[in-house]
């Protein structure tokens, strides 16, 4: 590991058997080998074949990213690993629920900003809103940053879901 510069964010898609312990294997691999996890999402995508898709956002040097891919590939329940960042254009979306507690003008402002970001109000009280927002991680970061200036916030983020553009499938 001679090159420690050139650290980049990568989104990696992993097709796995939906079986007990598979997520622990993936997470254990990352913690055991000192790799970074920025976000991780997992859910079953094929009930008949019992397959789940894990989307991991990580960062590292090209050498580390290459290691992450091959280390994932050698886990027995892993069917396929795709580095979306390397393999052409892809779409990445994340959903967040953002509660903003504010009154008066700040409450109104939160609604305006929500509108600009195309966030949906999914809960409202006289002194709070819960927004549902979908976008890239950057969009969500900016939205949350603005909301934090308006009042107390409570946030739940899903982590990234991602697919490659075009006709290729995992």
């Amino acid at each position: 590991m001679t090159q420690e510069t050139n650290i980049r964010r990568h989104t990696i898609s992993v097709l796995v058997d939906n079986e007990p312990g598979v997520l622990a294997r993936v997470i254990g691999l990352f913690s055991g080998r000192g790799y970074n996890i920025e976000s991780l999402t997992v859910a079953e995508i094929d009930a008949s074949d019992s397959l789940s898709r894990i989307t991991i956002v990580t960062s590292g040097t090209p050498m580390i990213i290459e290691q992450i891919k091959v280390q994932l590939e050698r886990l027995v329940p892993v069917h396929k690993v795709k580095d979306l960042t390397l393999e052409g254009p892809f779409i990445e979306r994340e959903m967040a629920l953002v509660k903003v507690v504010a009154n008066g003008e700040k409450r109104v402002e939160s609604l305006r900003i929500g509108d600009v970001f195309k966030a949906r109000v999914v809960d409202a009280t006289i002194s709070s809103f819960v927004f549902e927002i979908t976008g890239t991680a950057d969009d969500l970061d900016r939205f949350i940053d603005l909301m934090q200036q308006l009042g107390e916030v409570d946030i739940s983020r899903t982590g990234a879901a991602a697919l490659s553009r075009g006709t290729s499938t995992l």
Binding site: M63, E66, Q67, V70, E73, R74
Partner: peptide, 11 residues
């Protein structure tokens, strides 16, 4: 035989 051994420590 193990691709994870390649480029792990030495390029």
């Amino acid at each position: 035989i193990d691709p994870s051994n390649i480029n792990k420590n030495v390029r």
